[in-house]
């Protein structure tokens, strides 16, 4: 039964809790994302979106629960997920061209030459063309607009040839027209079978942009069709007080890893 379920899902999160000293950042979070679905993850600042992404990517140790990526524990999936970080996490001072950044996606892949980044030009070229950035390949990434930077990172994710893409705060610093361009690219990738999670603060046009929406405010408030999930109760839960709804969950209650 579990194997059957695993076959259909790229990401499965079971009862996950994450604690930071005195803060319960994720509280009994459970959900599953089927393969080939574009999911928007919405919630307030400090609601746990980035912690959730870090946990899925294996960057964050979870206090309780488990996460399966294509049926494998997230602790053992390094290199199987592509991750587009928040804008402020990137060292833009580093003088790399668009092509340099995309070529980083080929590290550790292929034969010995490819491992050291001396080959793989065709995959890099294809990835850049797919996001319409080939003509900017020689430009420095720190000279690009927000939308072009995101497309460059998506090209890097494509060069990594992974099935799952996580984009943290994908539209921060990206103008509306460029956001639509990025979404079009991501929808095409989704149609090719990629599973994509995007954390965003923007609640506009969610139903046009995403197949599914995950609402998180340290706990899962709702998950499903963007046109149906935003009930008044969910919005209160999402942007209201977390403590009122989940008073029975206390810090330290999941320390045993059971």
């Amino acid at each position: 039964m579990t194997n059957e379920i695993t076959k259909n899902y790229s990401i499965q999160v079971f009862d996950v809790c994450v604690e930071f000293e005195n803060t319960l950042a994720l509280d009994n979070v459970s959900f599953s994302v089927p393969k080939g679905v574009l999911t928007g993850v919405v919630g307030p600042n400090g609601g746990g979106k980035s912690t959730l992404f870090n946990s899925i990517a294996g960057l964050q140790k979870i206090t309780h629960g488990k996460i399966l990526i294509n049926g494998i524990s997230s602790k053992n999936i390094k290199g199987k997920i592509s991750y587009v970080p928040q804008r402020e996490q990137v060292n833009w001072r580093f003088p790399l061209s668009v092509k340099d950044v995309v070529s980083l996606g080929r590290i550790w892949r292929g034969n010995i030459l490819q491992k050291f980044g001396f080959s793989d030009d065709q995959i890099i070229k294809d990835s850049l063309k797919k996001v319409d950035m080939w003509q900017y390949r020689k430009d420095l990434v720190n000279n690009l607009s927000g939308g072009q930077r995101q497309r460059t990172f998506i090209a890097r994710a494509l060069a990594q040839e992974t099935e799952i893409l996580l984009l943290d705060e994908a539209f921060s610093g990206v103008d509306v027209a460029s956001q639509d361009g990025v979404i079009d690219i991501l929808r095409n990738l989704k149609n090719e079978g990629k599973t994509i999670l995007i954390a965003t603060h923007d609640l506009n046009n969610l139903s046009e942009r995403f197949d599914s929406v995950l609402c998180i405010n340290r706990h899962i408030c709702a998950h499903g069709d963007p046109e149906k999930v935003f009930t008044p109760e969910v919005l209160t839960e999402l942007y209201g007080a977390h403590g009122e709804k989940f008073a029975e969950h206390n810090i330290g209650s999941h320390n045993n890893g059971d």
Binding site: A57, L59, K78, G79, Q89, V90, G105, I107
Partner: peptide, 11 residues
């Protein structure tokens, strides 16, 4: 040096 977290996720 360029993208610490992205590099970690890439293995």
């Amino acid at each position: 040096g360029f993208d610490f977290e992205g590099a970690k996720v890439a293995g």
